[in-house]
Amino acid sequence: MTADGVPRPTLLLVHGAWHGSWCWQPLTAELNARGLRTRAVDLPSAGREAGVQDDAGVVLEELRRIDGPAVVIAHSYGGVPVTQVAARAGNVTRIVYLAAYQLDVGESLLGFHGAPVPSEPRGLQAVPDNPVPMFYGDVPEAEAKEAVGRLVPQSTRSFSDGLTRAAWHTVPSTYVVCAHDQALPPGHQEGLAARSGAVYRIASGHSPFLSMPAELGALLEEIADA
């Protein structure tokens, strides 16, 4: 319960491209220590030829397992399926976009970047070259190397699929800008953040759940309890 007697929400953690639920482990420990309940999903587009709708289905299924209010924390690509489905669950009180794609109806990840969208996307996108500076520039070296070893190819279709719904039009949203991000530049994040009702900024790279879980945990607790 919060100080005014309102039930604390469960936090559902939704990872980005090439990643899995494993990436949230340090943050989950921090949030649990703060008395917050957490859940995490593994999106099928990481490692398989699945699209946004497949990922959204997994998110919706997990939200329906949560008894009570939920706050969804979406990282990077994870913002795309979360935006597609969060309003349908009925128990989502807020979406937190963590250096994430807060797209609108008709937009896709590739389209947002001005890249051509294939008409029949197939196959998998390999893990990017030099993933440490892109994803983990401020993560301790040993942890960064361990994380790189767990990355998997990402479905091409997940980057190409356009949204048919945009939950942030009806569900309150907060954006957390990662100021030193080398994967989704802060300038792009600021443009996306203009769609959110509240904006916070942290001095991290793309993966603050690994580089500064205590600081991120404190911020998410503040947002969840607001």
Rank of each mutant, 00 (worst) to 15 (best):
M1S: 12
A3N: 05
G5K: 05
G5Q: 06
G5V: 04
R8W: 02
L12K: 10
G16T: 01
G16S: 04
W18N: 08
W18Q: 05
W18F: 15
W18K: 05
G20I: 07
C23Q: 13
W24K: 13
P26Q: 05
P26D: 06
L27I: 05
T28K: 11
T28I: 15
L31G: 11
N32K: 08
N32D: 10
A33C: 08
L36S: 04
L36N: 06
V41C: 08
D42A: 09
P44E: 01
S45C: 14
S45N: 11
S45P: 13
A46H: 01
G47D: 10
G47P: 11
R48N: 10
R48T: 15
A50T: 00
G51W: 07
D55A: 01
L60G: 11
L60E: 15
E61Q: 15
E62G: 01
L63T: 11
R65G: 02
D67V: 04
P69M: 00
V72Y: 07
I73S: 03
I73K: 02
A74W: 09
Y77F: 13
Y77M: 13
G78L: 03
G78I: 02
V80K: 04
P81E: 05
P81M: 04
V85M: 09
R88V: 03
A89Q: 11
G90W: 07
G90K: 09
T93W: 00
R94M: 00
I95L: 15
I95Q: 13
A100Q: 07
D104W: 00
G106I: 10
G106P: 13
E107D: 14
E107K: 03
S108E: 00
S108L: 02
L109R: 12
L109N: 10
G111Q: 02
F112W: 15
F112H: 15
H113M: 06
G114C: 11
P121K: 10
Q125D: 08
Q125R: 14
N130A: 15
N130D: 15
V132F: 07
V132S: 06
P133W: 00
F135C: 07
Y136M: 00
D138W: 02
D138I: 04
V139R: 07
P140W: 06
E141S: 13
A142H: 12
A142S: 14
A144G: 11
K145G: 01
E146Y: 01
V148A: 09
R150W: 05
L151W: 10
V152D: 01
Q154K: 03
S155K: 10
R157H: 03
S158R: 08
S160H: 02
D161C: 01
A167N: 03
W168I: 01
V171S: 08
V171W: 03
V171G: 08
P172F: 03
V176Q: 02
A179L: 14
A179T: 14
H180M: 09
D181N: 14
D181M: 11
P185D: 07
P186M: 00
P186W: 01
G187D: 15
Q189M: 12
E190T: 10
R195K: 15
S196Q: 05
V199L: 01
Y200E: 10
I202M: 14
A203N: 14
S204G: 06
H206Q: 05
H206T: 09
P208Y: 07
F209I: 00
L210K: 06
S211W: 10
L216I: 08
G217Q: 08
A218W: 04
L219I: 04
E221P: 03
E222V: 02
A224Q: 10
A226H: 08
A226L: 05
